[in-house]
């Protein structure tokens, strides 16, 4: 019986300590690391992960390396750096490693350009019965027999286009009205 009571007492103390620690650390992103933490092991883990991440980026985003090297064009060794990064980029392109990022960029560009009509046509499209004797008919025929209007690209009025940097600069003082 004393063992059970002792076990129960320790459990309650532990719950109380956890509660107290949570309260003391309220608002923090994590609890403090305890004494047995393997800092050395975790440090190696992160360094290894950072190196692997760098390798992934160097392989699949070799174009970004070329862009970065252009910043050093005027520095000593800058020309060599550009040459090496461009050669690396050519190798990655030939190995089709850059296609992944190009494909995603293409998909995003398509999504950005799509309109509500594109989505509507996409949902409303009914597969036609295969009939080799007839020409394919449009899904929607204007009543007056004219051809469908071209999809209007959204156009920003010239006056609305900011002439300078697009991010807002520091606030300028204005006189009270």
């Amino acid at each position: 019986m004393s063992f059970a009571l002792e076990f129960r007492r320790k459990q309650q103390l532990l719950e109380h300590e956890v509660q107290h620690a949570r309260q003391a650390n309220k608002g923090f992103v994590s609890m403090p690391a305890d004494c047995g933490t393997d800092t050395k092991g975790n440090r190696r883990r992160v360094l290894f992960a950072l190196v692997i991440a760098g390798g992934v980026l160097a392989i699949f985003n070799s174009g970004g390396l070329v862009q970065y090297s252009y910043d050093f064009a005027d520095s000593p060794g800058g020309e060599k750096m550009i040459e090496v990064s461009e050669s690396w980029h050519d190798m990655m392109s030939e190995s089709r490693m850059t296609e992944f990022i190009d494909h995603i960029r293409g998909s995003i560009a398509m999504a950005r350009e799509s309109s509500w009509q594109d989505l509507t046509f996409g949902f409303a499209a009914v597969p036609a019965e295969p009939d080799s004797s007839t020409q394919p008919q449009p899904l929607i025929v204007p009543a007056n027999g004219e051809s469908l209007p071209e999809r209007k690209e959204h156009q920003v009025p010239e006056a609305a286009k900011p002439a300078g940097p697009i991010m807002r600069a520091s606030a300028r003082p204005s006189y009270p009205n």
């Binding site: 190696r44 992960a49 991440a53 970004g64």
Partner: peptide, 20 residues
């Protein structure tokens, strides 16, 4: 997750972010 997994997560995560 081990270092290789973390590395791929970080690397492909940043790659996707840059692509998008």
């Amino acid at each position: 997750v081990g270092p290789i997994g973390l590395g791929f997560l970080l690397g492909f995560g940043i790659l996707l972010i840059k692509a998008v």
